[in-house]
């Protein structure tokens, strides 16, 4: 229950971290908040030769809005995101998601970038990134590149970040005007990793029909899972209960979640259907057609 020996170096700037990464090679690992990495070190599931501590890089700790897009620096603490007015007002789905992440003692140290880079399909922030179609900026020896959420999450605990690269920023566009939004999950105790969850963004057209609904399921697959068949099914329909139920059914029928001691696969599938319907219903209740006056409702 103690980590195996390693060397440690603290980077104070992004450039310094990138240089260290480039020269250290595969044996090194970035340490941000350590709230996922240190348990793995304590269990000796991870045995890096060198830890590069990026937790104190101040220039990557920011939350700003630019042209309707939310930009979050990788070393921003989860607690900072939770308290952000900007997020609460403009990105309600993200605000809902962050409240479900772990416990206050973990959010005070854990970073937004660390949670996204860790790519756990049972984690809330990757699901929010998927459904809000976030774009991640990573940098490495060969310069900077931007990766869409779809391409970023590769499989269980694996992202598209290369060994010599580092995640710098997460850019989250605002949901379309009037779109309904919802994030729901179920866990045995608040703060535990979820047994299931669903996030929905539901834009409507002028006639009040679904136009570009997005659905992402949590813990359903090795990555945050976009339920595209269900999304297509809803396209052009009014979000009425029968339609939403059919969509939730379609979403759940396509997944094959891994069972464990907390719930077997069929339980998790049934839970995914229930939560998906709950998220769809909630999103539908808050969705308004563009330029709705409120008079014609």
């Amino acid at each position: 229950m103690k980590p195996a020996p390693f060397d440690y170096v603290r980077a104070m700037h992004t450039d310094q971290a990138l240089e260290l990464l480039a020269s250290a090679g595969d044996e090194s690992k970035l340490l941000a908040g350590g709230q996922s990495l240190i348990p793995m070190l304590n269990f000796r599931l991870a045995r890096p030769a060198l830890l590069i501590d990026i937790g104190r890089i101040g220039e990557l700790a920011y939350i700003t809005r630019q042209d309707g897009t939310l930009r979050i620096g990788a070393t921003t603490r989860q607690a900072q995101l939770e308290r952000s007015k900007l997020v609460g007002e403009g990105w309600p789905l993200l605000a809902r998601a962050i409240g479900w992440v772990a416990h206050p003692q973990i959010r005070s140290v854990g970073t937004v970038g660390g949670s996204v880079a860790h790519a756990d399909p049972a984690a809330e922030l990757p699901v929010a990134c998927s459904v809000l179609e976030a774009r991640m900026t990573v940098a490495g020896r060969s310069g900077k590149r931007e990766i869409s959420a779809d391409d970023f999450f590769v499989t269980h605990l694996t992202s598209a970040i290369e060994a010599d690269e580092m995640l710098l920023e997460i850019a989250i566009p605002a949901a379309p005007d009037g779109a309904g939004q919802s994030f729901v999950e179920y866990s045995r105790r608040h703060g535990d990793f979820a047994l299931g969850g669903a996030a929905v963004v539901m834009p409507l057209d002028a006639e009040g029909r679904c136009a570009g609904v997005r659905i992402t399921l949590m813990t359903a697959a090795p990555v945050p899972w976009r339920a595209r068949t269900a999304e297509k099914l809803l396209e052009g329909s009014a979000p009425e209960l029968a339609m939403l139920s059919a969509a939730a059914e379609a979403a759940a029928s396509e997944i094959n979640p891994t069972g464990d001691i907390h719930g077997d696969s069929s339980y998790r599938k049934a839970l995914a259907r229930t939560l998906c319907l709950q998220a769809l219903t909630e999103a539908a209740a808050t969705a308004t057609p563009p330029n709705a006056t409120g008079m014609d409702q």
Binding site: L31, G34, N42, L51, G55
Partner: peptide, 27 residues
């Protein structure tokens, strides 16, 4: 537990509660 689940080791770092078993002293 020494892996972040029980909270027995909680201390405050610059005023905020943190788990001391999930932080390196050098951090």
């Amino acid at each position: 537990c020494e892996h972040g689940v029980c909270g027995a080791c909680t201390v405050q770092l610059d005023g905020a509660p943190v788990r001391s078993c999930l932080m390196l002293a050098i951090q």
